[in-house]
Design a protein around this nucleic acid. Sequence first.
DNA 1: AACGCCTATACATACGTATTCAGCACGCTA
DNA 2: TAGCGTGCTGAATACGTATGTATAGGCGTT
Lengths: 343, 343
Amino acid sequence: MQRRPTSFDIAALAGVSQPTVSRALSGNPSVSESTRARVLAAAQKLHYKVDKNASGLRRQHARTLALLFFEEEQSAEGSLINPFYLSMLGPMVRRCAEAGYDLLISFQQLSSDWHVDYEDSRKADGIILLGYGDYLEYRPRLHELIERGTHFVRWGSSGEGQVGTTVSSDNEQGGHAATSHLFEQGRRRIAFVGTASPAYPEFMERWRGYCRALEENGITPDPALQVNAGPSEAAGRAAVEKLLSEDIAFDAVFAASDVAAIGAMHALQDIGRKVPDEIAVVGFDDIPAASLSSPPLTTVAQDSVQAGKALVEAIIAAVERGSAGNRILPTALIVRGSSVARA
Amino acid sequence: MQRRPTSFDIAALAGVSQPTVSRALSGNPSVSESTRARVLAAAQKLHYKVDKNASGLRRQHARTLALLFFEEEQSAEGSLINPFYLSMLGPMVRRCAEAGYDLLISFQQLSSDWHVDYEDSRKADGIILLGYGDYLEYRPRLHELIERGTHFVRWGSSGEGQVGTTVSSDNEQGGHAATSHLFEQGRRRIAFVGTASPAYPEFMERWRGYCRALEENGITPDPALQVNAGPSEAAGRAAVEKLLSEDIAFDAVFAASDVAAIGAMHALQDIGRKVPDEIAVVGFDDIPAASLSSPPLTTVAQDSVQAGKALVEAIIAAVERGSAGNRILPTALIVRGSSVARA
DNA sequence: AACGCCTATACATACGTATTCAGCACGCTA
DNA sequence: TAGCGTGCTGAATACGTATGTATAGGCGTT
């Protein structure tokens, strides 16, 4: 085992000075082509790679982004990450690589006294925040970040009360599309399963789209049809059971998340109600399991590829150019079996 | 906006020299308690964080691990990561944090000329490899890594023809448990859906367990019941359709992956065969969708929490102590609705 | 021929930390 | 009181790169 080669070794081998090596490798145009070629050959030969610690130290940045998941306290062991976030992971990594950044990944307990070390310690130049759980709870931390001048971008809605640069799906439009679709299928008593509280801004926006679609069709949203439910199978199941136990009539369910929608379907199937013939179900997210359920779930797809790319692009813009605008991505209704009654 | 504080700033504020600050913060015992307290207070006050680039440069390591996904060529856009790998992510990140390491994440096309930059460029001290796709195809690269003295640990079986340190589930035992369970349910014609080729060593081991379980019960495995299928819904579906079209009788399916198992169930349900009453189905992996399918899928769970932890511990052992042994994790049969005929 | 300008390279230095070595003060022993 | 270890701290330095500044050579202009 040899000592790792440095730019001085390359310089010696190529018969130039160390600074020339640095310039040649970084594509500086003031190096002649013939010299650059010699340097490149030498570097190749010795398997030389720039030492990122030294490079980062000198340039005062790391060309690294940090991906930070906020998580609810308790999930520690279960450690299930929101499947939609997970599906953004691939595209994010890929976009980072294209842009020449590395991606660091980490969790943060919502409660913990997180002084986001990454930027402080120059390990990352910017941060992508993926929060789940109660938004109101971590909002104060975001203000802290802004005060300290930390570069960050967040996935989440950008409406009132929101802070920082965000990228999000057009939740309102998605909710509208899902509800309109159900209306077109002849459904008139459409239940909304998902909380309508500002603690979950995305859900609230989906609910707004739901209301708008109903109103456009001359229906006044019935508060009895709105049932709170978080994004879990059990919550979706419980929501439907509540409707049933209270004898509230409904012929369709629009759930604000796929996982809850699947729970709702299970609850219906358990008591023998046919999906979609008696009750149509639409979800939101298009998680992988959506197409695997039976019947396959009609849902509003968030484009995780675009989402991941947009997030990375936004944070890079913030880091390199100092600012980035909010971005809202379109959603697409994916019609599958759970919402269309068989002929 | 201030300039970032350095250890010199802390030194000045605490009335000591820079080296003392470094020692105080790193817990060097030769610093007196009173001095350490003063330094800590100053650091706190200025929000000081050690610059990891400088620190890494000086110490010649990064306290960072890299997580590398090998992927098949084409998945580029779809970018679905194996759900089991995804479920290891949380535990890995957590274990890294506990051990004081950061985790970098990245993909590699199987074909690309990857000269795993991370360790070369001192950005990471060791690498965790998560490969999917044809093992035989990337095995030569692993030899390269070993030759260059790179520290790495791989998820995958450790049997013959395998290279490097690995952590894996006990696939053989899992296959045995699944098959024994089906036998106990009275099934005698159990199909194996999943390839039995050394290109997919895990599948092959599961198949071995399947064969052993049958033989222990006096059944000779019938080659006609072994159908090749990769880990995709479509492959599982196709496998069952093949059995049906060839008129091969079977009363149970053991699929080497959950996704294929779900595909198999769909194919059966499409033609009106009842699961589990007519045909029982068991999968492997316990992906999140397994419990959401209907009927919920009986499967062999791989403990992703233990897996993630073991992988991180192994690579840290390799980095810090120069070596690590292989590790095989137990699996657990999770009995759900898809394999137990209703009373 | 003298001058200025441009190109390509070398020289010198700074980034912030961790560590080796030297030094100082103190207390103990003889 | 001289000698010596011991416990803390400071001075000096090295890690490997990137960049501002200086320099050498080549060419065109008057």
